[in-house]
């Protein structure tokens, strides 16, 4: 699809020296070309600030009676898990937008893929931090807790999704396949949830529900956790902006490479 337009473009611009083409590109999309637009820059700054504040607040939390110093992980683990849920939701939404004919655009396909990749990073971190928290609390690295198991299943589902995206196919076919897979993955989340919760009914309740906001100590924990949620959300958003841009540049580079190859073949054919 895109190949066709860029091929005709290439046919007209091919004889022009490379410098002119560069200038033309700069004029047509000046902001898009630069690595960090104002949105990405301010997001990045906010993310770094929030993350710094989270770490500072999280590490100075008082040790609790039941958990000792380990409760300081409350600033990290819920935030990371939250960001992985957002990533999954964005992937599903973007996939649905691609499948809906009136909003179909390669942008949504890229957003879905980018968000899924970031989601895999956050899900892996959820498992890692959960495991690290679980070792001193429960005495083992892994318990078959319903939420941890659900996260592990999600990780496997989205690793499969990313593997499917890497399978070579026409952009349209790949986007359709990926969008269907992403929606399927989200559709089974409630089923997975019920299956693993009924299977394993031991859990330590939701971390927020246990706490009492009236208590000063608990208030600090809630603040640290909420700050962690905010920081991880900002980090996710910043990563998404950049990862989507990488995906777009990759698509463009692929088109350009193809156009260049076609132009070269033509140039070879012309003198003969």
């Amino acid at each position: 699809m895109t190949t066709e337009t860029s091929t005709t473009d290439m046919a007209t611009t091919a004889p022009v020296p490379a410098g002119t083409a560069t200038a033309g590109a700069d004029v047509s999309e000046p902001v898009e070309r630069s690595t960090s637009g104002p949105l990405a820059l301010s997001l990045g700054l906010a993310a770094v600030l929030a993350l710094g504040a989270t770490v500072a607040l999280g590490l100075t939390l008082p040790a609790t009676v039941e958990q000792g110093a380990y409760s300081r992980l409350i600033a990290i683990h819920p935030g990371v898990a939250w960001a992985s849920y957002i990533a999954v939701a964005v992937t599903a939404l973007a996939s649905a937008l691609w499948l809906w004919p009136r909003t179909r655009s390669a942008r949504w396909d890229r957003t879905a893929g980018a968000s899924a990749e970031i989601g895999v990073v956050f899900t892996a971190l959820t498992l890692a931090t959960g495991s690290i928290w679980g070792r001193p609390t429960w005495g083992v690295w892994w318990v078959w807790d319903a939420r941890l198991t659900l996260s592990a299943l999600m990780l496997a589902l989205y690793l499969g999704y990313l593997a499917l995206r890497r399978v070579p196919a026409s952009p349209d076919a790949r986007a359709r396949r990926s969008a269907v897979t992403a929606l399927l993955a989200v559709a089974v989340v409630p089923l997975n949830h019920f299956a693993v919760t009924w299977w394993r009914t031991l859990h330590q309740g939701r971390s927020l529900a246990q706490l009492d906001p009236g208590n000063d100590v608990d208030g600090a924990f809630i603040a640290a956790m909420l700050l962690g949620l905010l920081a991880m959300t900002l980090v996710y958003a910043w990563l998404l902006v950049h990862r989507v841009r990488v995906a777009r540049l990759e698509d463009e580079a692929e088109d350009a490479m193809l156009a260049l190859a076609i132009a070269e073949r033509r140039r070879e054919a012309a003198p003969a």
Binding site: T5, S6, D9, M10, T13, A14, A18, A21, T22, G24, A25, D26, S28, R33, L249, E252, A253, D255, A256, A259
Partner: peptide
């Protein structure tokens, strides 16, 4: 790499 791509 991208600026060397044909302008669109």
């Amino acid at each position: 790499v991208a600026p060397e791509a044909p302008a669109r």
